[in-house]
Structure formats: C-alpha cells, structure tokens
Design a protein around this nucleic acid. Structure first.
Length: 404
RNA sequence: GGACAGGUGGCUGAGCGGUCAAAAGCAGCAGACUGUAAAUCUGCCGGCCCUUGCGGUCUACGGAGGUUCGAAUCCUCCCCUGUCCA
C-alpha cells in the first residue's frame, strides 16, 4: 500500500523555517500551513458545516474521548464514520484523548497500560490505552489520527516531564503496532463509506478541488513529541518518536501556561529536530500571533479552541487586536467587528447589534462571533501562506509584528 | 370609612436590637480563556479618601419624632402600596 498521506512542499522561505505546501489526504487536499478549527464532539460549536465550508476550513478536529463517550464510536462506525455522521466530506483529524489526560486529571489515573478515567458525563469508569485509542479512532474513521500521549501541566518537575515523555514514547510504539495491525487486517474494524453517498458532493467555496486518493481510506497516524520545557527531553522524545516512524509529527505539551518565549523556543527547537519532509503539527496553539511565530519556526498545522471558545464568551480577534464585544463602549457602535475584515459577519452586522445579542444571551451572538473569529484565523493563515508562496514571508512577518 | 399585609441599595428579596454599607439572585461593569467537563469562569458593584487593609469617613433600609450606650430591626404619628370588608 502506498502512503495514505502525501506531503508536498511548494515553497520554503529563505530566511526562516516557514514553508508552504499541500497535504493530500483521503478526503481532499489541505493547503499548509493550516489552521484546523476544533470540533470536539462532532461539531464546531455554534456553526454549521456549510458555514465551515464557506469560511474556507479545509480540515477540522474531532476528539476520541468525547466521541467515544457520546454518542459512542460504535454508533459513529454504524453511521458510516465521522465524515458521514456529521456530513463533513473534507479532511478530519482526531485527537487521541491525550489532552484529556491533563484537562480531566481529577477524573483519571495514568498507569503504564493506559488511562483509567471516570466519565465527566455520568461518572462511569472507562479505560483508554494506546491500542484502545487507535481502535476507537479507526471506528471514527478520520484522515489523520493521533497517538495517545500524556500531556502535563506547565509547572512540572523535570522528573514528571521525563516520566510523561518516556511513557508517551512507549505508548507511541504500542499505538503504531496497533495501527499496523488494523491496517493489515484490511477493512477489519474500519469504516467503509458508501461511495454512492450524496454527502460527498458538498464541496463548495474555499475548499480546493482535489481528488480523494482511491483505495487509501486507512487513517494515517501522527506521533507526538513531549518533554515539557526541557530541550534535552524534547530531543530525546523527538528521536524516539522518529525512530518509531509516523506520517506526521506533532509537538504536544505547549501553551499549557508557560511564558510565550518558552513556547516559541521549545517549538523552534523541537520543529528543528523533526524531518523536513513530513508535516509538523503544533498541538493546541494558539493566538493569531502564535500562528505566525509557529509558521516562522517551521510548523505546518495548528489547532486551537481559542477562536471558537473566545467567540462564545464574547471576545473577538481583529486586525486591531482583541476586542471584548460585550463592553459598554460598543453599545452604539455602528462599525463591524473589524472594519478591515471581509467576512460575512463584518459585511453585514454592527458591533452594537452583536453586543446586544450577547447581553440578551441570544445564541446568534455566539454564532456570529464564531464565524468572524474563525474567518480571522483562516484568513490570517491564508495571508501567511500567500506570503510564503510569493517569497515575501519575512516582509509580511515584520509588518504584522510592527502592529496595526 | 374599616380590617389586615407591607414599604430595604437599579429590580426581586433576606435581615427583625449590636459582629449591617446591609444575605442571595437578577441586572450592570471589567477581566480571563491556547490538542473544549466552558454559550464558561473570576473580580467589582452607595459616595469620597489613603494605590495599601478584617482601613478611614460621610450618606443610607418610606417620612418625622421617640426609646436605647447602640435602631433597617422596638414605640408614636404621618405618607404611600396591595388585598379584603363596607
């Protein structure tokens, strides 16, 4: 079987590590660097799949832990996989539940074998192992799946970071074995999509035309580098993960509360260790500035809940910086969220109206803010990519860094 | 006209002799949010003053008097509101 994932680098910036490329997956091609909106429970909160397409989202995230608990991965398998279930015929990446090891730490216990945890929904006991995470993700049927890792909180002792990093490596090996086994067993546990499904034709604006690679529906597996803020641990982790070998490499455990400078230093150091011909994914990052800084350091993929969560909480990203739309100063402001923005929200609605929706707790407020924020992120990424392709990344970088 | 019930900070509403500038909720104001237990959470919310604190001070619980060392809390009268009876 040929590689299920093909990563094509189109252009490299001469002065930095920035690069622009194409990531070919079973459900279409993703232009990199890319930002992936987070749709944890099979939904990018507050907006529809049509709206995601119009925004130009090329790939979204789903979450193993959440979808396993509800509605259950078997339900999703029976419904033809996550793409069909949620009617998103474009690329999907599923996270393994590794982040939940940290965020739900009060509900779980990490052992060599995996994570024992209690459901945050009903308290029931569950077990997630590297093999189980692969198995569940096979049922979900994404294009890219992640190994189970252990993500630790920021102030962590070297000992803790070391232990979590080593465990992540051992889990990565087991995940790879499980993944190989699944692949060898052919259609085995995996999703077979109905080729006659009428859901596949919904490719509208913003999504580049691409040919799904026939016969390679098996999700590819990305490994995750851990090691906290310790450069030596990062190196050791990267070596071990690369030794196992994955289709793509993620940098996990950043933006967990550490100072920005450290985030960037560790990302730069780690990205520099990873193979140039594979996609590099900085997990859970970040702010619009973080994206730019990440790209500069050689990152190809990002995901973050920030644009969607902040939107629901009433704060929006603009070319002039962050704006808390609930503030009283916008009560009579007829301007759009960002006068420089061309999104459908900014072309039509005023700050005063959106503020009103938030104060009145109208759900449309959250939707409009989400649409705008995601547009801002995706558009930021488009501009960065264009700058790389045209050889003007550094100029673009200095201009943006200089501020509005 | 009479009988009850009641008037507390923007609203609802607790408090019924001191620890009350006054619970709680709402509203309001501000902030946070990075692989989503989040349409959530945190702080402020009478005025003035010292950036400080279990801080000082002034004005405050319908109005006016009174009892008391001390009153949102007790007494008297008045005003107002609601319900019922005439």
């Amino acid at each position: 079987m040929s590689t299920e994932l093909r990563f094509e680098i189109l252009s490299r910036d001469s002065g930095t590590r920035a690069r622009a490329g194409l990531l070919h997956t079973a459900h279409g091609t993703i232009e990199t660097p890319c930002f992936m909106p987070v749709g944890t429970a099979g939904s990018v909160k507050g907006i529809t799949q049509e709206q995601l397409e119009r925004l130009g989202a090329q790939i979204i995230l789903g979450n193993t832990y959440h979808l396993y608990l509800r509605p259950g991965h078997e339900v999703i398998r029976e419904m033809g996989g996550l793409h069909r279930f949620m009617s998103w015929p474009h690329p999907i990446l599923t996270d393994s539940g590794g982040y939940q090891v940290m965020s739900l730490k009060g509900l779980g216990r990490v052992t060599e074998d995996g994570v024992q945890f209690r459901s945050h929904l009903d308290g029931s006991a569950h077990f997630l192992s590297p093999e189980r995470a692969v198995e569940i993700q096979m049922a979900l049927g994404p294009d890219i799946m992640m190994t189970l890792d252990e993500c630790v909180e920021y102030p962590a002792s070297t000992e803790t970071m070391h232990r979590a990093m080593k465990l992540t490596s051992r889990w990565a090996r087991r995940a790879k074995e499980a993944w190989k086994k699944e692949r060898a067993s052919g259609v085995g546990g995996r999703v077979s999509e109905n080729p006659n499904s009428d859901l596949g034709a919904g490719n509208s604006t913003g999504v580049p035309a691409s040919l799904p690679t026939p016969g390679s529906r098996h999700p590819v597996l990305f490994g995750i580098v851990q090691g906290g803020m310790d450069m030596n641990l990062r190196r050791e982790s990267a070596e071990e993960i690369m030794e196992i070998g994955f289709e793509g490499y993620a940098i996990g455990g950043l933006s967990v509360g550490e100072p920005k400078a450290e985030t960037y230093d560790v990302a730069e150091h780690t990205a520099g260790l990873l193979p140039a011909d594979h996609p590099r994914y900085l997990m859970g990052v970040g702010t619009p500035e973080d994206l730019l800084e990440g790209v500069k350091r050689g990152i190809d993929m990002f995901d973050c809940v920030m644009p969607t969560r902040n939107a629901r909480n009433g704060s929006v990203f603009t070319s002039q910086g962050k704006l808390v739309i609930k503030n009283a100063r916008f009560a009579r402001d007829p301007l759009p969220l960002d006068p420089a923005c061309e999104c459908e929200v900014c072309r039509r609605y005023s700050r005063a109206y959106i503020r009103h929706l938030f104060l009145a707790r109208e759900m449309l407020g959250a939707t409009l803010a989400t649409l705008h924020n995601l547009y801002f992120y995706l558009d930021t990424m488009r501009k960065i990519r264009q700058a790389i392709l045209s050889g003007g990344f550094e100029k673009y970088y200095s201009r943006v860094r200089a501020g509005p």
